[in-house]
Every structure is written in C-alpha cells, then in structure tokens.
C-alpha cells in the first residue's frame, strides 16, 4: 500500500514538475526488468521449466513489474513511450546478465569497503534516479523537489544499514565496543556526505542564498544516520525489530524524542555488541 501511494504520488509530482517524466518512467521500468534478468535466476528457471513455458513466464514477469509504469504512460496518453515500455519489457525477458565476468562497478567507498560499497552498487539505479531528479528540479527551478531528492538520497543510504552483518564481521575488529561504534559512525557519516555531496553542491550553486537550508538537510541526514546505525545494533543480531522501528519513527516525527532515542539505542547497541568484541 505504501509503495502504491509512493509510486503514484511520486509519479503525479514528477509529471507536474518536469517534462522528462515519461523518460524517467521508462528508465524505472527497464531497471526493474534488468533486476529479473540475472543469469543465476534465469538458469534456475530454465532448469525447472521447459523453454516455451520459461519464455512465457519471463515475459509475464516483466510485463507484471512494468504494469505500474505502463499504466501511468497510458493515463498520460504517452503512446510512443507506452509502446517503447512494452518493447523494453518483452525484449529484456530474452536477456540474462551474468555478474560473474563483469568487473565490479567502481564506487568512491571502496577504500573502506562494507555497507556503502555494497549498498551503493545494489541501489545504483535509485541513486542515479535521485541525481537525475535533482538536476531536473534545479533546471525547472524547483528547490523543494531538489531538497526532496537530497532527502531520498539519505533514505537510500539508511537502507544500506537494514541488514545486520554476520557476527564474524564484528568479531574481526581489534577494538572495544565504543571505539567500534564511533569508528562506524565517523566512517558512515563521511560516506553519506560523499554520496550526497554532488546533489548538495548543485543546490548551493543554483541557490547560493539557500546554503543554510542545504546544510541543515545535510546535518539532519547525518544525525538520523546515527540513529539508524544505533537502531541496527540495538536489534542485533536480528534485523531492526518493531520496537526499535517505532523508536526510530518517533524520532523522525518528533525530533526532540532524539534526546531519549540516541542514549537508549546506544546503550542497547553496546549491550548487544560487547560479548562479540570483548
């Protein structure tokens, strides 16, 4: 339901703000289809199904994931893009992409590899889409849309912290719990600043008078990165659980709640990690 509202709400906003909305829909649709075209997945399907049912299944899958974008293109009577979308969807069902022989996608985070290196590569299409929206927003002189794109970049980076690492990847560190958490926080803050810097710089260059607002978004984004980081280890070794999600959500809705949330999550994180590091 949330995804439904986000998609159609975002699409409506996009069509209000930019003339490139149909192209963005096509990129979005293609990105979803490519996700289903991994070689490993397709080899597995080929093992289970004979060639004709396999082809039908792949076409059906691609059409299903493309359906929301095709529906939007239909509503906005973008006939050319509608047929291009169907073409992409069916065409990509015949392809499968192996990651095995590809060289890894370079990232600016590889010198400190972990969450951001992996997360950036996994969400590359979403990150590029945010940058694109940022540029388009600034071209149509819409500061609010640009600020929203910057905020989405932060949310994207928070998603890198959702899955907890196996205990081995905490155990290997030669430091105590406090040093571990502080180092993580510093490293992740630098990386999130690096990820959002192009968007922030573009905003400041386009709106020099809004420097303060951009800095505030950056500051708040980094602060909530700390909250999500502590939330991750407060739930460790499990994924972020319901009570922690509620605490994080409350701190988003009611920022003074951070005064309680940060110390609480920090204490829980220390308790969970200490047995592994000590």
């Amino acid at each position: 339901m949330i995804l439904f509202v986000l998609f159609f709400g975002g699409t409506y906003y996009l069509y209000q703000q930019t003339v490139w909305a149909s192209e963005i829909q096509i990129v979005f649709l293609a990105a979803l289809c490519v996700k289903l075209s991994t070689k490993k997945r397709n080899d597995f399907l080929k093992l289970i199904f004979q060639i004709h049912p396999y082809r039908k299944l792949r076409m059906l899958e691609n059409l299903l994931v493309s359906l929301p974008s095709l529906f939007v293109l239909l509503i906005y009577q973008q006939w050319l893009y509608f047929f291009i979308g169907i073409g992409f969807s069916l065409g990509l069902s015949f392809l499968s992409f192996s990651q095995k022989h590809f060289r890894a996608f370079p990232t600016p985070f590889s010198n400190k590899p972990f969450e951001f290196t992996a997360g950036f590569r996994i969400t590359i299409f979403a990150v590029l889409l945010c940058y694109l929206i940022e540029v388009l927003a600034l071209l149509v002189t819409n500061f609010n849309l640009a600020a929203a794109a910057l905020a989405i970049l932060f949310f994207c980076s928070y998603s890198y912290l959702v899955i907890p690492e196996p205990e081995y990847f905490i155990w290997i560190y030669k430091e105590n719990t406090v040093a571990f958490l502080v180092r993580k926080w510093k490293q992740l803050t630098l990386q999130v600043v690096l990820l959002t810097l192009p968007a922030a710089v573009l905003m400041v260059v386009s709106y020099p008078s809004k420097l303060q607002e951009v800095l505030i978004i950056e500051g708040i984004g980094c602060l909530y990165l700390l909250v999500v980081l502590l939330g991750k280890y407060a739930s460790y070794p499990n994924e972020i659980n319901l009570p922690i999600t509620i605490i994080i959500s409350l701190s988003f809705l009611f920022p003074p709640f951070l005064l309680f949330a940060i110390p609480f999550l920090y204490a829980k994180s220390r308790k969970n990690i200490s047995p592994i590091l000590s």
Binding site: A104, F105, S110, N111, K112, P113, F114, T117, A118, R121, I122, E165, F169, I172, Y173, K174
Partner: peptide, 16 residues
C-alpha cells in the same frame, strides 16, 4: 557480502 569484490574483502579484513 553481495557486491563486494575479492580485493575489497581482503581490505576489509586487514583494516579490521
């Protein structure tokens, strides 16, 4: 980890 290269894995363990 998904999407971490062999070289990055070595770096991660050494940096730890």
């Amino acid at each position: 980890y998904k999407k971490i290269t062999g070289e990055e894995y070595i770096q991660l363990l050494a940096q730890a």
